[in-house]
Amino acid sequence: MRTSHERGIAEVTITVESTIKFPYKRSLGPVIGPFMTALAEQRFIAIRSGSRVICPPLEWDPETAAELPRDFVDVGPAGTVCTWSWVSRPTEQHPLDRPFAFALIKLDGADTALTHVVDVESIDQMSTGMRVAPRWRAERLGHITDVEAFVPGEEAITVNGGVPGEPVTMMSYDASITYKIPVSDNTIKAHEATAQGRLVGLKCPVCERIYARDRGFCPIDTVELTDDHEVELPQRGVVTSYTIITPVQYPGQTETEPFSRVMVLIDEIDVVMMYQPLVDVPVEDVRIGMRVAVVWASEAEKADAGRPGNLVGWMPTGEPDNTDPSLANRIM
């Protein structure tokens, strides 16, 4: 994550940039699979639905949802452009990195149109009704982009090699979307406070409940909480509940050893800080009633930009445990 300054209409807003990126794996099933397998073999297949020939093929009739018998038929490779649009500025998701056309292409023998791209040098070379044929990719995986692009003419441009030995049953899809999300004033203030070694909250002016500094609202009274409502919080409290997490490995996971997360009821004031890290406490020593105090980052740790604010976590104070049985009612 990194912050950047984005100029808005009326003000400069601080935004945080985050990218959602994940390699999805999709199973293709009994109809898309054979279609993709055929692509790898530099062929197009369609599926019959009554007298209609549907390409790209579906397992069902798109009008009636009737399950279609697996009655495949070869179509193309050439086809006719039914309509098209011109992409002047391709994105990283597009198959071509220069201006190109999207087109609905009715492959010869099919009654429906396949969406794909047409590679021509300029928009002047595009026209509705034009004839196009596929230019196959050298490395074919059984994917819709095994057709690199369609090109004007009747003849497919075929290449040797790159054919998977087995029927294609899966495809990958790499999504990557970057968001620039404005950071709220309350979040900035929360970070500033922790940078100063202060633990602060926001007090609802109506019900006087106290919320985390970055919350922004009292959901009970639906009032907005701002700087005017800031209150200092004592930096000590008691653990009211906890869990010890054995990290599951997934893309982006940063943890390898079991770690604890605790709920801390702050002294003297009615607020619970949820899912807080504990510092230097063996996981087997974590317990309800344990007295803890805030640990701030050292100067060296402050340099670590990855840490949100400078609150490292909580550490036992060494005081006797709080044995009040009602503590367990204060998870929030």
Partner: peptide, 13 residues
């Protein structure tokens, strides 16, 4: 399967 991997968005279509 057929559209998303081509990067076809609302404007393109």
């Amino acid at each position: 399967f057929y559209l998303a991997p081509l990067g076809a968005d609302h404007a393109n279509l």
